[in-house]
Simulated scan of single mutants.
Amino acid sequence: MKVSIVTDKQRLQVNNGGVVVQPEERNAEGVWYYQDTTKNFDKLPIMYKGFCAYNLALNDFKLIHGDTRIGIVQINDRYYSFSEPKEAVLFCRKPSTYIESIANNAKLNPELIQLLDLHTQFSNVASYGDLAQVSSKPQMKADFGTQTDTHFYEKNIVKNYEWNEWELRRKALKLANLRRRLTKSIQTNTSNFRRENSTQVYLPKDQFIQTKRDNYSNVPQPKVYLSGIRGHQRRDDGQFLPANVKKIDLTVDIDE
């Protein structure tokens, strides 16, 4: 008996025509996304490491890579890919049944749990990345610290509390003296019905008057020139002759 082994490359060449799941065939659960109409199509987190979900659910399961060209279906916030359109249609008709079958196959074959990232479906199984962070040696030492307040804040503070005995004695004597104190008032005939009176006046206001036109006057600026003040002549006896001072009026009239 001759068995032919088909590689993933040869399997993808069968669907070179770009066969996708047609709208009339999607009479089942799930939302379909296609490469030509979906942004960031390559970044969608596909379940089972991109293997065909339908073939993993069979009893003789096969690890066959899904062909994203036929579309990716979203069921319960999870994305699944398939190798052929007819397998995608069959899976979407009963998705819960096929998903449960994949979990049963993983229980019988535990190596599939880590291979297909199925540790989220098993609470007692951790991923390889989580196991690598756990140290095999027991930790005998650990760093810890404690912190306490330097001054505790008391909430039940009594402001009237006094610890000094002499201060308490002084307050007691003060209260005792107040018991013997009396308040007296005297009223005479002239002080009867007297009360304080207050009056209010209106202060004078500042008033301004403005005329219709502005007027002004101009006066001449007086200018006087004195000549003969300097350069006095002397007599033979050394005395100065009287100065011949002349006053010249240089004031200019306004009209000029």
Rank of each mutant, 00 (worst) to 15 (best):
170 R>A: 10
203 L>E: 05
208 F>P: 01
176 A>R: 03
163 W>L: 12
175 L>D: 03
173 L>W: 01
214 D>C: 12
183 T>Q: 13
198 S>I: 01
187 Q>L: 08
191 S>F: 03
204 P>C: 02
171 K>E: 08
205 K>Q: 11
184 K>F: 02
201 V>R: 13
200 Q>I: 09
186 I>H: 10
218 N>E: 15
200 Q>H: 10
195 R>Q: 10
170 R>L: 07
214 D>W: 14
216 Y>N: 13
207 Q>W: 15
177 N>S: 07
187 Q>T: 05
167 E>S: 03
187 Q>G: 02
205 K>M: 10
203 L>A: 12
185 S>M: 10
192 N>Q: 07
180 R>P: 00
163 W>M: 10
178 L>A: 08
185 S>G: 06
206 D>L: 13
190 T>Q: 10
165 E>W: 00
171 K>H: 08
185 S>W: 05
181 R>V: 06
219 V>R: 09
214 D>K: 15
201 V>P: 04
199 T>V: 08
209 I>E: 09
202 Y>E: 14
164 N>Y: 00
165 E>N: 02
206 D>T: 13
170 R>Y: 07
204 P>K: 02
188 T>D: 05
180 R>T: 06
192 N>H: 03
195 R>E: 10
177 N>Y: 04
192 N>T: 04
173 L>C: 01
209 I>M: 10
211 T>Y: 11
202 Y>D: 14
199 T>F: 06
204 P>Q: 02
212 K>E: 09
185 S>D: 09
205 K>H: 10
180 R>D: 09
190 T>F: 10
182 L>Y: 03
219 V>I: 15
190 T>C: 09
201 V>T: 12
216 Y>T: 14
164 N>S: 04
200 Q>R: 13
166 W>A: 07
203 L>H: 05
168 L>E: 01
209 I>Y: 08
211 T>W: 09
218 N>C: 15
163 W>T: 06
197 N>G: 04
177 N>V: 01
205 K>P: 07
206 D>R: 13
218 N>G: 11
194 R>H: 03
196 E>M: 04
211 T>K: 13
216 Y>I: 12
207 Q>S: 13
165 E>A: 03
207 Q>I: 15
166 W>E: 10
203 L>V: 07
189 N>K: 09
213 R>G: 03
217 S>M: 14
208 F>E: 14
194 R>A: 05
204 P>I: 01
209 I>K: 10
211 T>L: 14
194 R>N: 09
207 Q>T: 15
212 K>F: 08
163 W>V: 09
194 R>D: 05
173 L>D: 04
203 L>W: 01
174 K>Y: 01
205 K>Y: 08
185 S>N: 11
190 T>I: 08
197 N>I: 06
